[in-house]
Simulated scan of single mutants.
Amino acid sequence: MGNPMRIRASATGDVVEVKVLMRHDMETGQRKDASGKAIPAHFIQKLVAKCNDKVVLDCLMGTSVSKDPFLSFKFKGGKKGDKINVTWHDNQGDSRSDDAVVS
């Protein structure tokens, strides 16, 4: 399991803005180490964000996403006090899930 994500969620009216900083190496599989061996691909493939167990974002990622990705998105229908859950799964079977409360 990766390091904890930093999640911030704030509401303005019924629009919630969520900002997520994920800690992940996001290796493409094309770089080589000091000895010349290829570093195996290791990247986040799927990310799902939920507000009170309702999916508000479902996305697929690939090797073109940078190390420690930052993601920001907005959705309607949320309010202060709602629970936000963000979960990712990578190509090596690792996953991480973290929660935040809308402020």
Rank of each mutant, 00 (worst) to 15 (best):
S64M: 12
I84E: 01
T87C: 06
L21F: 10
G62E: 02
P40I: 10
I44E: 01
F75L: 03
G93N: 02
K37N: 15
V20D: 03
V16H: 02
F73C: 03
K50A: 09
T28L: 06
D68W: 06
T12F: 08
D99S: 13
S66N: 13
C51V: 12
I39S: 12
C51D: 11
L57C: 08
I84V: 09
I39H: 10
E17D: 11
A100E: 11
A38E: 13
P69M: 04
V18K: 00
A100G: 10
E17H: 09
T87V: 08
M22W: 01
Q30E: 15
S35G: 11
S64F: 12
A38H: 08
S35Q: 13
H24L: 04
V15S: 09
K37I: 00
T12M: 12
K54Q: 15
V56A: 03
V55P: 04
I39N: 10
G77C: 03
F43C: 00
K76D: 12
D25F: 09
H24F: 05
T12Y: 11
D25I: 12
C51P: 07
A49R: 00
V86T: 00
V55R: 10
L60V: 07
S95R: 14
A34M: 14
W88A: 03
H24T: 05
P40R: 07
N52Q: 14
S97P: 04
Q92T: 14
H42E: 07
K67D: 14
D25P: 15
D33R: 09
P69K: 02
L21N: 08
V65F: 06
E27A: 08
R23F: 08
K67H: 12
